[in-house]
Design a protein around this nucleic acid. Structure first.
Length: 294
DNA sequence: AAGGCACTCAACCGCAGTGGG
DNA sequence: ACCCACTGCGGTTGAGTGCCT
């Protein structure tokens, strides 16, 4: 017991924000060797970072297909919904939003959604206290227990194939879309051709799982079309940080993702007609208090 | 203009889980 | 069965930034 953390030696280990130069070194290495074996990354690249820091930088920032910026009302709704179901299982929640990282979702929840939900939950809770004191408003993740898996909307079956980042496990399926893969995107080609572990593990236990599998496969295909624009603006030895490594998802890819994503959205949101657009999905009273919601 | 405050988010920390030897 | 190396995850921190007074 008590194995020291990998960064414990401290000596010579750099901390704090990553520089564009470090990003480039890391991306170049992952292009050659693929993600994983993080222990060897600092050793082989000369990066003065611990392996954990390298992994985090990759998964939360450099990984292709990451969508940054504002969350859409749809995404908000899904996060709120899944948080009510799963609790603070950010990795699990992130698996349903393949373009978002668990860190992003966690941050967004803590900074925006938690307050939002609380604010809207308050009046609902007040009204509920007079009627349903024991079974309703808690939104506990245990509320939908595995024992209720006979329910049409049980998460148990479908969670399995979604546990890996779909967009990093590309099946290498050929695409009809024009793929302009230049710059940094070239760095990812090698590892993007790996087979999909999710596809290999497919068991099709129920209809929802099959649907999610299809979603996964389409995500894989979409990932093959991700266009990563390398915009390394080197001016007089300086690196423009803001544009050094900017991944841009082609509009047609986003369209495909959106189309396939609607399947998931249907499943997530179909019991809440007319509630999605306000971004809060009626979480305060509607979803959590309805035992047949899922 | 400047100081204080609140907010955001990248990054860190520590623990748990897992698989190989 | 046990140990250990490694990865994954969730909670937390703190630097940067913008707004307000």
């Amino acid at each position: 017991m008590g194995r020291p953390p990998c960064c414990d030696n401290g000596v010579g280990v750099k901390k704090g924000p990553w520089t564009p130069e470090e990003d480039i070194v890391l991306v170049s290495y992952i292009q050659q060797h693929g993600p994983g074996n993080w222990r060897s990354v600092p050793e082989n690249t000369g990066l003065m970072r611990c392996s954990k820091s390298c992994r985090l930088r990759w998964t939360n920032y450099l990984r292709p297909g990451i969508k940054r910026g504002n969350f859409t009302p749809h995404e908000e709704g899904i996060i709120i919904h899944l948080q009510a179901l799963l609790g603070n299982k950010w990795a699990a929640i992130a698996s349903y939003l393949p373009q978002r990282t668990d860190n992003d979702i966690k941050n967004y929840w803590n900074t925006h959604l938690k307050k939002k939900v609380k604010r809207l939950q308050q009046p609902a809770a007040d009204s509920f206290q007079t009627t349903a004191s024991s079974n309703a408003v808690t939104c506990s993740p245990n509320y939908y227990s595995p024992s209720s898996s006979s329910s049409h909307h049980s998460l148990q079956g479908m969670q399995q194939p979604m546990n890996s980042y779909p967009n990093t496990a590309c099946s290498g399926a050929p695409s009809n879309n024009e793929t302009t893969t230049t710059g940094v995107s070239n760095l990812f080609q090698a590892w993007m051709m790996r087979p999909s572990p999710a596809a290999a593990a497919a068991t099709a236990a129920n209809c929802k799982q099959i649907a999610m599998q299809e979603f996964q496969e389409e995500q894989d295909a979409a990932a093959a079309n991700i266009v990563c624009q390398e915009q390394m603006v080197m001016t007089g030895g300086d690196v423009n940080k803001s544009s050094a490594l900017e991944m841009v998802v082609a509009p047609e890819v986003m369209g495909a993702s959106t189309a396939t994503f609607s399947l998931l959205e249907d499943w997530l949101l179909d019991d809440m007609p007319g509630q999605a657009m306000d971004g809060l999905m009626g979480i305060s009273a509607g979803c959590c208090s309805d035992p047949i919601m899922f």
